[in-house]
Amino acid sequence: MKVVIFTGCFTLVKQIAVEVSILKVLQYLNIEPIVPRNINCCGFAFRSIYPSTSLYLTARLLASLHNPETIGILTLCNGCYLMLRETVYRLKEDRKLLEGIKSHLKEEGLELKEIPRIIHPIEFFHDIIGIKMLENAKRRQYSDIVVATHYGCHALRPSTTPSFDNPMNPSKMERVIEALGFRTRDYPERLDCCGAVLLATNPNLAMRLAYNKISGTSRWGFSLLVTTCPYCFEMLDSRQEAIMQMFSDEPKLSVMLLSQLIGLQIGLSESDVALNLNLSPIDRILPYIVKR
């Protein structure tokens, strides 16, 4: 099986662990990743300012990333995922729009022959790799570790554009994590926003949102929070210390990427999944997950 990997700008330049860990997991699962170099920004950040520019940028990705030998485009960033699924939806609905885009693409020597499948990492593990496979691949049962899931807003919402799970009550990430031998539990802050979008225009507010998410989640005694999105990871992991300091609080929530947790559970090493790039307090939970 082959799959195209689309990192998005932010994973590419900042959240390296997202890319590293997924590539290592794919290698273990015998799936061949195609990592195209000719990528571009999806235009998410300035989509309201330059709407048609953003639409073109995303449609351009559909053309340049598409590879008919693969199952589709595994999109690592939630922002890119929203842009791609929305664009796919719009282009399928609107023939005229599609024709206009195609003519611009042609000028660049690109062709949009068919619209590829856009795959979210959670969807990839749940629907394509499958729960059975993960259950078989797991090394240990961790009955007392309870994991908080964080899907990220743009993985599921808005429900007007179809996604891979119920936008108000998703469950696929829970089933993936349970297949790995951990427990999960619903919590009120589960679908809350990390605030990352506001980093550009209102960083203080962004930090407040992240603080509410982290401190709210911490009330429930989870061992670990797991996400897939590089932006959510930036807020909840990389910046956790700064955020907590801003509100005279302490870092208290261990955060990992789903691909890191899967990697560790199937026997990859900490450096395989770039665990040294996690800045949240994961040390206290690691002994329960990794044999040292």
Binding site: V13, I39, C41, A45
Partner: peptide, 16 residues
């Protein structure tokens, strides 16, 4: 900041 990101994208394909 958004205008800069669009400018970056035009020049380097990437926003960042």
């Amino acid at each position: 900041i958004y205008l800069n990101m669009a400018e970056n994208t035009m020049n380097t394909y990437l926003a960042f």
